[in-house]
Design a protein around this nucleic acid. Structure first.
Length: 919
RNA sequence: GCUCGGGUGGUGGAACGGUAGACACGAAGGACUUAAAAUCCUUUGGCCCUUUAUCGGCUGUGCGGGUUCAAGUCCCGCUCCGAGCACCA
């Protein structure tokens, strides 16, 4: 009987849906396991063959865990807010909700065909008011809390107000935008508006005037992780710096905890490294400098040991100190310079790194040496990092070096033997010279000693700095969560929780208003019941994805994000599968969000994702045809060198094994209707290349087409068979016949002609060995996410069973169970053919038995000086001495020894024999 | 520049320090067939020598060294490719 995948797959997909096979509930009698995929943004293009890779991998793991007796939570949903739907809405007037719904429907159809074990009753969509109610709720909580650096957690703003009322800022150590100082009396004397303004300085969700990444083309502000090299990640539009009053989340308060948490979770080293980079912790000292005229300012340095080599200071052009330090004589020059730097965009600054700067006219005094040093202004110092001012040590910092050379400033070497005639010596090694009390110390010793000295003398303090910035949380867009915020007297207040969700209003156009307000400015009656104006910005894309994994635990709850009970049971995500592109965005924000909720006692775990696997990218494999210049004649690959040709991308879907379907090619594009061909062996052979999978390369492969031709089980197996999960690899449909053949042959074992033919005979030792070897290998491979090798193991197993056309139930039944995670449809059918009436999903994962794997003899490779020459079969339990003896007396040994005497014989029992002799 | 990955046949890729190339694709040959498709069988890293045949030899995992009885695997140096970070003081 033929393997009719279409019939089998439809039948079981219907059965699973009808029987709610994948529905999951809290079950205290079973251990839980939570497997999560990064939910997709439903784009208009639908899924291509690269998207399901991670989903298949996680599905295999889910099914495996379930077979092992775990209660597995494996949900799916949609990250439904996003720019593309809104851009499309702007162009067509179509409401983004409509496009989004359409795309979701399409995604769901595609996902359903692949046979995933999702519990769709738990589906969430970030644009659904029942869902974003909890995004707004979390925002309110962040508004109502501040970060206490002493207890190291978020605490209610009400507590902070109490502190202000009793002692002002005296003993306060809290995360804030800028350090403030006031007494309790001063606080009490302030107006409500002033107090609110001060509280914003401490709230975890706060409104402040910040330098932001403004993207004019998208008409919105972007977070740091949404910008790369001065361009927006989405769309690649230029981004400029602008000061705007924006909502931000005080992620920086959690920098140290985000860093420490990395040591406790099982993520790939590269991903952790990316996050460590992004958090950018640096330990150093903050030192106080004063000018002769009494202006005092602080600099941050990681190299306090180089204090004796400071030959000038530099301020960022944006620094508030610029005005204080500029002397009347220099005022014009400084003004000119500041204006010039303002004009430069971030991108220009990055591309064109020429050394620029201007002298301020004043001098600072080195607090350690007492020498006078000039203060300069230059845009190589960033306002946003440290204090916006640096002490320059040209001998040992390449940027300072370039500046010093350019402006002819002195360079004092501080490390013995360092050659600084051509470039600075930046390494933290060597012995200090020219450094007073630090002379003779190694750099690390000097750093420690200098820090001590600075603290002792009260010149500064030891400090830790982070590169991680607060997350800008406002977007001047329509298609996002509205803020639960209204304005009274110009100050923001949050809505009462009972008013949630605050639903996204309708607007006539998805564009800014004539006065430049965000699109929500077009909504009618966008105000509270009391007539206060509501916030016009919406939340960014990462808002909805920051806590979605919690919502899946309890998706229908309308009184809490997640009930205590559900959270206590499901705890955290045991396995999270997704791409690396979220390393500095979603994966930082959701860890922050989770830690915040943890501080408030809403969740039991302070890290949300215990283990994380990054699936590699599926690259495209493009095909080319070669057109002879100036003609409509195409020449086959191996003849193309005889002509002057242009390679042209051709749709991979009309090419099979690199042979072009000429008819389809002529119909593909009217331009080629009359094309002529120069063939080799009657065929047109195409060239190929590995490129990104994209429409413009005509190399996009749609999973629907694969499923139509081969079935979902073949697609699943083949995606896994392509190579290691975490590695990027090209998709080449050519190889798919191999796994399809495997399934057909496996199917064939069950039938004799058209008749089902299963034997109840006892299996042979060989058959049991094959089975148990496979169980062992596949179990090990699944645990290690080595799915490509488990598919190979299945193939080897079948090849062995095929020798005897094994149709014994005792073998095929366990085999159908271990195959079920990979190819659930055919496995379910096989399981039922064998007489079972329940779902294979509820079977038990078989245990391999070592006794079946025992061999009575081993084939020993016999090597001479490491070179294998022949093999000898010997009993497994033969002693080391006997193995050595047997090998030495063998007649072939004499031949390879060529009369020499063995110096040494290495015997590794069960592995190898190596005979060493002087050649 | 710094930090992570990674270089193995025509292709995707296997290989606890122990017979490199499992498994699969492709290719070649054969069987079946009027023919094709499908299916099945054999061969398949390269180079030699073969006529004793599937017997044998040399060589081979980016390059150069080293450790070891034994190295794709460990160590040192280099090189190329990919990713992340980058005037972050």
């Amino acid at each position: 009987m033929d393997y009719n995948f279409r019939e089998i797959e439809q039948k079981w997909q219907r059965y699973w849906t009808g029987n709610k096979t994948y529905k999951v509930e809290i079950d205290p009698s079973k251990p839980k396991f939570y497997v999560l995929d990064m939910f997709p943004y439903p784009s208009g293009a639908g899924l291509h063959v690269g998207h399901p890779l991670g989903y298949i991998a996680s599905d295999i793991y889910s099914r495996y865990k379930r077979l092992q007796g775990f209660n597995v939570l494996h949900p799916m949903g949609y990250d439904a807010y996003g720019l593309p739907a809104e851009q499309y809405a702007i162009q067509t007037g179509q409401h983004p909700a409509v496009t989004t719904q359409k795309n979701i429907t399409r995604y769901r159809e595609q996902l359903d065909k692949i046979g995933f074990s999702y519990d769709w009753d738990r589906e969430i969509r970030t644009c659904d008011p029942d869902y974003y109610k909890w995004t707004q709720w979390a925002f309110i909580k962040m508004f109502e809390h501040y970060y206490n650096n002493v207890t190291n957690k978020a605490e209610p703003i009400a507590e902070l107000v109490k502190i202000f009322e009793t002692s002002g800022t005296k003993n306060l150590d809290a995360a804030c935008t800028e350090e403030l100082n006031f007494s309790a009396e001063e606080w009490i004397a302030k107006s409500e508006k002033e107090q609110q303004e001060i509280l914003l300085n401490y709230r975890i969700a706060y409104l402040a005037d910040l330098k932001v990444n403004w993207c004019p083309a998208l008409g919105t502000v972007l977070a740091n992780d949404e910008v790369s090299e001065g361009l927006s990640i989405r769309g690649g539009h230029p981004v400029e710096q602008k000061v705007m009053r924006q909502w931000s989340l005080r992620v920086s308060a959690y920098a140290q905890r985000l860093l420490d948490g990395l040591d406790k979770i099982d993520w790939s080293e590269s991903l952790k490294e990316t996050q460590r980079n992004w958090i950018g912790r640096s330990e150093g000292a903050e030192m106080k400098f004063e000018t002769k005229s009494g202006v005092s300012f602080e600099v941050f340095t990681t190299r306090p040991d180089t204090i004796f080599g400071v030959t000038f200071m530099v301020l960022a052009p944006e620094s508030e100190l610029v005005d204080d330090c500029t002397t009347p004589e220099q005022a014009d020059a400084v003004k000119k310079y500041i204006e010039a730097t303002k004009k430069r965009t971030e991108r220009e600054r990055m591309i064109d790194r020429e050394v620029t700067g201007v002298f301020s006219g004043s001098y600072a005094i080195n607090p350690v040496t007492g020498t006078e040093i000039p203060i300069w202004i230059s845009d190589y110092v960033l306002a946003g990092y440290g204090t916006g001012a640096i002490m320059a040590v040209p001998a040992h910092d390449s940027r300072d070096y370039a500046f010093a050379k350019h402006f002819n400033l002195p360079i004092i070497p501080l490390i013995e033997g360092a050659d600084i005639s051509e470039e600075s010596f930046d390494a933290k090694e060597g012995i200090m010279i020219n450094s007073g009390f630090l002379n003779g110390l190694s750099v690390p010793e000097a750093i420690a000693k200098a820090k001590e000295h600075i603290e002792e003398k009260g010149i500064g303090k030891v400090r830790v700095n982070y590169r991680l910035r607060d997350a800008i949380f406002s977007r001047q867009r329509y298609w996002g969560e509205p803020f639960p915020v209204y304005y009274k007297n110009g100050m923001p207040y949050v809505l009462d929780e009972s008013k949630l969700p605050l639903e996204l209003p309708e607007v006539d156009k998805y564009l800014p208003t004539e006065t430049g307000e965000p699109p929500l400015g077009r909504a009618n009656d966008w105000e509270t019941d009391d007539g206060y104006k509501l916030e016009l910005n919406t939340m960014p894309g990462f808002a909805g994805s920051s806590a979605y994994y919690l919502r899946y635990m309890d998706p229908k709850n309308d009184t809490a994000l997640v009930s205590k009970e559900a959270n206590a049971y499901w705890q955290d995500v045991d396995l999270y599968v997704g791409g690396t592109e979220h390393a500095t965005g979603h994966l930082i924000y959701s860890r922050f969000w989770n830690k915040f909720l943890f501080d408030l006692g809403f969740v039991v775990k302070d890290e949300p994702f215990k283990k994380l696997i990054n699936q590699g990218m599926i690259q495209g494999r493009s095909n080319f045809v070669y057109r002879i210049q100036g003609t409509n004649t195409f020449v086959s690959l191996n003849l193309k060198d005889q002509y002057d040709v242009t390679p042209i991308h051709v749709d991979v879907n009309i090419v099979t094994n690199d042979i072009l379907d000429i008819e389809k090619f002529r119909n593909w594009n009217p331009e080629y209707k009359t094309a002529e061909f120069i063939l080799e062996d009657g065929k047109y052979v195409c060239g190929w290349a590995i490129e990104k999978m994209s429409k413009s390369m005509f190399n996009v492969v749609n999973p629907d087409d694969i499923i139509d031709n081969y079935g979902a089980d073949t697609l699943r197996l083949y995606e896994m068979f392509l190579g290691p999960l975490e590695q990027s690899k090209p998709w080449d449909t050519n190889g798919i016949d191999g796994v399809n053949r495997f399934l057909k042959r496996l199917w064939g074992l069950f039938f004799d002609g058209d008749k089902l033919n299963i034997s109840n005979e006892k299996p042979t030792a060989d058959e049991l060995k094959t089975l148990h070897k496979t169980i062992k290998k596949v179990s090990y491979d699944i645990e290690n996410f080595s799915y490509n090798t488990s598919v190979s193991a299945f193939m080897i197993c079948l090849n062995e069973l095929y020798e005897t056309k094994c149709n014994k139930k005792a073998i095929l039944e366990p085999l159908s169970i271990i195959l079920a995670p990979f190819a659930p449809h055919i496995a379910e059918e096989m399981y039922h053919l064998l007489g079972n009436t329940n779902s294979v999903c509820d079977a038990q994962w078989p245990q391999h038995k070592e006794e079946y794997l025992q061999e009575s003899s081993v084939t020993y490779p016999i090597s001479f000086n490491g070179k294998v020459r022949f093999t000898l079969e010997m009993p497994t339990d033969m002693s080391k001495e006997d193995v050595e003896k047997t090998a030495l007396v063998n007649e072939q040994t004499a031949k390879y020894l060529k009369g020499k005497t063995p110096k040494k014989v290495i015997v590794v029992p069960g592995k190898i024999v190596n005979i060493v002799f002087a050649p």
